[in-house]
């Protein structure tokens, strides 16, 4: 993790919707993900089912067609903007990243 920035790697999902992998300056946790709402926070407590597994966190925002997910305690947040047949709302990416910057207190650097 780079404590001074969020590194964003932009790709497309298999439906050609924008998918961004954000390498965070600190581990992802429930509080951070929930703060990136609105949306529904879903927690899969895999650590209780498989020894050595980690918990999976997801924020599902159906209104904005946004899904953010990552591993509890790790530094990667994967966000898909839009879904099959539906584009993300205009401005959603900018709003999301603006909030992320505000919460983490560091800028986002786009990695090509």
């Amino acid at each position: 993790m780079n404590g001074k920035q969020v590194t964003a790697v932009r790709t497309l999902d298999c439906a050609h919707k924008l998918r961004v992998r954000y390498l965070l300056p600190r581990p992802l946790d429930r509080e951070l993900l929930e703060s990136l709402g609105p949306g529904e926070l879903r927690v899969q407590a895999f650590s209780l089912k498989v020894q050595g597994a980690r918990d999976h966190l997801a924020l599902i925002d159906e209104e904005r067609n946004l899904r953010a997910a990552g591993v509890d305690g790790e530094g990667l947040l994967t966000v898909t903007f839009g879904k099959l047949g539906r584009e993300a709302h205009e401005g959603v990416v900018a709003d999301f990243e603006s909030l992320l910057v505000q919460l983490l207190g560091v800028p986002i650097a786009l990695r090509e």
Binding site: Q44, R54, H56, G70, E74
Partner: peptide, 8 residues
């Protein structure tokens, strides 16, 4: 997927 990264 993030699910794989967490579980497997």
């Amino acid at each position: 997927s993030p699910e794989w990264n967490a579980l497997i």
